[in-house]
Write a protein that binds this DNA or RNA. Structure first.
Lengths: 104, 104
DNA sequence: TTATTAGATAAGCAATGGCTTATTTATAGG
DNA sequence: CCTATAAATAAGCCATTGCTTATCTAATAA
């Protein structure tokens, strides 16, 4: 059973932007705040929501806190989506091809 | 670029329950309202949100309106998730199991 | 026609969400 | 020590959300 918090966390565009950034590269709160059109406290609040949803993890180093996407961040979401691929036959074939490629 | 409306629509547990029902079987508003702990207007409102997000489609027949999941309902969401799937190799095995179940 | 039923829409309400500025806590460096 | 900086937390504001009851529209059936 997927947690609503995952969908809620990703429903906000700013939060999704944060997640996408952190998927590419670990960043401090300050780094994120510098890129986004919102204040540092707003970023901290967004990070708290993402952390609560299990989407990001933190690492403290001195005064800095570095965030990154959590391992298996999207596991539950991916599983939920996969359940409905059954109603979507054309995509299943494509997916099988992708999996085959991943094996090679 | 995925639309926030998809995440927002699925962030509500009642709405997710509606979507999951409609993925299995076409149902009238009344059918849905009978199964859920909310009023008929609430169900209509939820359906409007799901429709707005492109997740469900309707078919009118007399006084009844039957809803079902839209074709390709989760296309954009699946695409978004797939972009991050490469970071989680363990997930691929579970996905294969799901696909195997679907074949049987 | 008239009454009934399916569903959408309107209006109002309490709770939540995303933002701000102000403050607090913790670490670093003079 | 004292000051500066990184980040979290507090408090308040306004918009949005999910629900309710009441109403409206349209289609069926008496």
């Amino acid at each position: 059973m997927i947690d609503s918090n995952v969908f809620k966390a990703l429903a906000d565009p700013t939060r999704r932007a944060v997640f996408e950034q952190l998927a590419r590269k670990e960043k401090s709160v300050r780094d994120l705040a510098a890129e986004l059109p919102v204040s540092q406290p707003a970023v901290s609040q967004h990070l708290a929501v993402l952390r609560e949803a299990g989407l990001v993890a933190e690492r403290r180093h001195g005064r800095f806190t570095y965030y990154r996407t959590a391992p298996d961040a999207l596991a539950s979401l991916a599983e939920w989506v996969d359940r409905y691929r059954v109603f979507w036959p054309e995509r299943v074939e494509k997916l099988k091809e992708i999996l085959k490629e991943m094996d090679e």
